[in-house]
Design a protein around this nucleic acid. Structure first.
Lengths: 233, 233
DNA sequence: TTAGAACAATGTTATATAACACAAAAATAC
DNA sequence: GTATTTTTGTGTTATATAACATTGTTCTAA
């Protein structure tokens, strides 16, 4: 039996991870309570200090989780790709959001009230394990990120970001172009540097034949070298 | 009925958070499977790349979770106080440890095999919620830490660390001395700076009458000023 | 009690990176 | 299609912080 559709989107295939561990009754509850929301490019999905209300699942598009630091300088904390969940951490910690989320490009997000999820969690321990696993993975990434961002030099940080983008969003048909187009400013706030330095370092990489750039398209020419730069700094 | 004792330690009062959400049967399982291990000052509790096996609960002492970064430079990621749990994240993420843990001072740790905990989790969703909450809180802290460590200047980072130590370990009877004595080197690797700079900045704070130092004892003289420095950088 | 190591303090130099300024190119609006 | 804003690119300067060197101090051990 195919799942009911909302705005032409098949919930059962899109919410895959969660869907798998649910009973028919639980699935019906989700169907009834899920909202599908579309966001324009650069539109805010939630913002700092807001009270978290929904579990969000990115169906389509690309989303950045970021935080405004000293002197209004933004720092990208995490990036979300389809089909990943986000927005639930603060609810579980009983805090307002400490980050904000915005769509990089036109995006479709499925929202399910956290109260529903929380109730479901108490009756379905496999669902709980899923959240424990996601949180544990993210915390491990955050722990490593702290060290990478603070100890590596500019070149190493930018190289790492490029590799991270490749892992996250993959390559285009040519097998080289990273499948996400970021402004230099976003690349900078992902790599903890100023925009000027992102631009400069990117140019250096081009001179060294590690990458090629065409506007916002970045082609990885020599991945080994990029990895070496990322490791060494 | 009082809980059985192991090496003179009362499990039921020490494992408080977890204990509360367990049934009598589950408590009995923990009693049977818990080991109490003592660690000397500076002794390693677990190390990087090791396979995680136990949930650990610090009963007595102080523990640092750290990571070896570029060029062997250590970075303290988290600090543990009694009665906090640690060592479980990597197991849930199905990874080897990305961090190491060491005792700052003579410490007593209760260890419970993660297999036991995982099984218990599937049958007790309140226990699962507890882990979800702990992980969510830690992830929020990590997210904020990334921004603080990368964007604040040395003075701000050190001030923040001192405040953090005060919040975590409290003050002594005099109402001013921070209740943990760290080497300058540890203070540095907690604040992402070199040992020299930790020493220098500490001396500056003394000159400015923000703190007073006597060896490794740090007395907070002007907390407001310290907060201001932490905010501004 | 002395020898040796670990730790703390301080000054000097080197350097990575931010900050600033400006020009060119591209995107967007009118 | 021109005007205006945003983004990208590049050179210059300033500065925060690491790196290094040296000395004094405290702790540890034989």
């Amino acid at each position: 039996m195919p799942a009911k559709r909302k705005n032409g989107i098949d919930l059962s295939s899109s919410l895959s991870d969660i869907w798998k561990v649910l009973s028919d009754d639980e699935r019906e509850v989700l169907r009834k309570n899920a909202r599908i929301v579309n966001f324009k490019k650069n539109e805010l999905i939630y913002c700092e200090n807001e009270i978290p209300k929904d579990l969000m699942c990115l169906f389509k598009g690309k989303v950045k989780i970021f935080r405004t630091g000293v002197g209004g300088r933004n720092q990208i904390i995490r990036m979300i790709r389809p089909v990943q969940y986000f927005g639930y951490r603060a609810y579980f910690a009983h805090e307002p959001y400490v980050t904000a989320a915005a769509a990089f490009e036109p995006s479709t997000v499925c929202m399910i009230p956290m109260e529903i999820i929380e109730k479901m969690l108490l009756g379905n321990s496999h669902l709980a394990m899923l959240f424990i696993q996601m949180l544990s993975t993210d915390l491990g990434i955050a722990d490593q990120r702290v060290v990478n961002l603070t100890q590596k030099h500019i070149r190493g940080r930018l190289a790492e970001s490029l590799l991270f983008l490749k892992e996250s969003y993959g390559l285009e048909e040519d097998g080289a172009t990273i499948n996400i187009y970021l402004a230099r400013e976003d690349l900078a706030s992902l790599s903890n540097m100023t925009t000027s330095n992102a631009i400069r370092t990117l140019s250096n990489f081009v001179d060294e034949h590690v990458i090629a750039i065409d506007g916002r398209k970045i082609k990885i020419i020599d991945e080994d070298k990029l990895r070496k730069i990322s490791r060494m700094g």
